[in-house]
Amino acid sequence: MKKPPLLLDFEKPLAELEERIQQIRDLAVESGENANVSDRIRDLEARATQLRRDIFKSLSPSQRLQLARHPRRPSTLDYIQAIADDWMELHGDRGGSDDPALVGGIARFAGRSVVMLGHQKGRDTKDNVARNFGMASPGGYRKALRLMEHAHRFGMPILTFIDTPGAWAGVEAEHLGQGEAIARNLREMFRFNVPVICTTIGEGGSGGALGIGVGDRLLMFEHAVYTVATPEACAAILWKDASKAPQAAEALRITAWDLKELGILDRLLPEPPGGVHSDPVGGANILKAALTEELEALLGMTSEQRCQLRYQKFRHIGMFLEGATPSSNGRL
């Protein structure tokens, strides 16, 4: 049986309405009075659709953050299994570890071999503990680099999926060079001569997200977020009060629309009504169609053009004033 989705506060009125519809339906089946209630059900369903649209249209950044972190939100492995025709997971950084918080392998996609990799959050509490809630260790970033290097050598496009609260902050991670591992990925990802497409599927948390986030194109789901620091951490540092996280989420400009405006995001992926967690198959189809299209466009370029595109994409991010003339590098 399908588990009922976990409810966020702002989803509750919708869930109540849907529950009432179901109750009426059940009653109708029991009493055999289908015809009498079908009008009423149709009316309620129309109201539910409208309510869903209204709720999801006007979400605040902190509500989007909740959606991005929704425990039922599809994960990297969910998407890979849904969009790849075939897939084999590959393990290990060849340096003594295999990080379950960052997974990857070779997939068949759009008629060719590609390397897919991404942060992996757990599907339940036990899985989450094993996968460290999607917070990768240095070994995870090194595994990703190894797989991307492989893709580069064998001419396979690289598709990465970003979904992490951030890179793991622990004693061992520091001793194994968390900073070095991320830094090296940032530099090397500029070197690969195959197409690189990065998609933020849920939570894009800071350097830990960027560690697999340097590509020709950045895609992002409608309710995904991408942040320089978690709003909680930002509130604790700048407001000296962690409870100001909603204000921080607002101020940090973390939504897909914000990133589009700042010239960082290339393509926003609309989610099915109610978010991808309420329709994972619909979400996967949207992702597959977009990746296929983007990949085709990138494959039409030479590797020099792609490397130049990737370099210029990041080279132009930023806003400043130069001399007396207010010039900006960004696309605001």
Binding site: A183, L186, R187, F190, S206, G207, L210, G213, V214, Y226, T227, V228, A229, C234, I237, L238, A251, L252, R253, I254, D258, L259, L262, I264, R310, Y311, F314, R315, I317, G318, M319, G330
Partner: peptide, 18 residues
């Protein structure tokens, strides 16, 4: 990274590394 410039700051990490 400077939080007051949000994601623009984070992306400077990639820009310099490039």
């Amino acid at each position: 990274a400077r939080m007051q410039e949000g994601m623009l700051s984070l992306m400077q990490m990639a820009k310099i590394s490039g």
